[in-house]
C-alpha cells in the first residue's frame, strides 16, 4: 500500500485550512502543517502557552529562548500577533473562539472518541497538556496520524481501549493511507492516498469504513 510521509501528510492537511482561520496545531507533527498552507491564505496560529500569531522558526542568531510554542520550539511572531496569560489562552480554547485544531492520536473510534494522552502502561506518567481543553472547545478537530501502529495493530477502532481525551469530538482523520470523516454512521472515506484501494485500507482498519457518498 502507498503511504504518505509525515511531511506529505502535513501538506495534504494544509489544503483544508481556509483563509482567515484561527488554528491550533498540537505538539509534534501537527506543527509541520503551517509551512504548507498556501501563501495566499492568511491564517493565525494559536499556541496554548499564550500567543496568537505564531510565526516561522527564527533565523540563526535571532533566537529568543523566551519565545516558544507549545512544542517548546523556538518561534517568531507573525503580523497581527498578541500575547496573553494562561487563563486567557484556555478561555480562547474552551470558549469556541478557535476554528480548527490539529492533533495527534493514539486511537480514534468510529463515534469520534479520541485517545491521545495516556496508554495502559502505569509506569509511564500520563501527560494531558491542553488536549482535553481543545477537544471540548474547538468546533473542528482534525486528527493527523499513522493509520496503524508500528506493530501493525489498528488505531481506527470501533471503541478506544486507551483512556479517552474527549467523547465524540473528532471530525476528520488524516492518515498516511486515507482521509476519513467521522459521521453519525461511522467513518466515511473522503479520499485514498494515490494507488490504494478501499479494500486494502479496510483490511488494516478495525472499524468499518463507509464508501464516499
Amino acid at each position: 500500500m502507498n503511504s504518505l510521509t509525515d511531511q506529505q501528510l502535513a501538506a495534504r492537511l494544509a489544503l483544508d485550512i481556509p483563509d482567515g482561520a484561527y488554528v491550533n496545531l498540537g505538539i509534534g507533527k501537527p506543527t509541520y502543517v503551517s509551512s504548507y498552507v498556501p501563501s495566499d491564505r492568511e491564517v493565525l496560529y494559536h499556541s496554548e502557552n499564550g500567543i496568537i500569531g505564531v510565526g516561522p522558526t527564527p533565523a540563526e542568531g535571532e533566537e529568543d529562548p523566551e519565545m516558544i510554542d507549545a512544542s517548546k520550539r523556538l518561534i517568531t511572531v507573525a503580523p497581527g500577533a498578541a500575547f496573553f496569560e494562561h487563563a486567557d489562552s484556555f478561555a480562547i480554547m474552551r470558549g469556541g473562539h478557535i476554528d480548527i485544531a490539529v492533533l495527534g492520536a493514539y486511537q480514534v473510534a468510529e463515534n469520534g472518541d479520541l485517545a491521545n494522552w495516556a496508554t495502559l502502561d502505569e509506569k509511564f506518567p500520563p501527560a494531558v497538556g491542553g488536549a482535553m481543553d481543545l477537544v471540548v472547545g474547538v468546533p473542528k478537530i482534525f486528527v493527523m496520524m499513522k493509520h496503524v501502529n508500528k506493530d501493525g495493530s489498528p488505531k481506527l477502532l470501533k471503541r478506544c481501549t486507551y483512556p479517552l481525551t474527549g467523547l465524540a469530538v473528532v471530525n476528520r482523520v488524516y492518515t498516511d493511507l486515507a482521509v476519513l470523516d467521522v459521521t453519525p454512521e461511522g467513518f466515511r472515506l473522503v479520499e485514498l492516498t494515490d494507488g490504494n484501494s478501499l479494500d486494502d485500507v479496510q483490511a488494516v482498519t478495525e472499524a468499518r469504513i463507509l464508501p464516499p457518498v
Partner: peptide, 13 residues
Amino acid sequence: LEIVPQGTLAERI
C-alpha cells in the same frame, strides 16, 4: 502526581 488538564490547572489557579 496529580495530573490536571492544562486549562483546568490555569483556571483553578
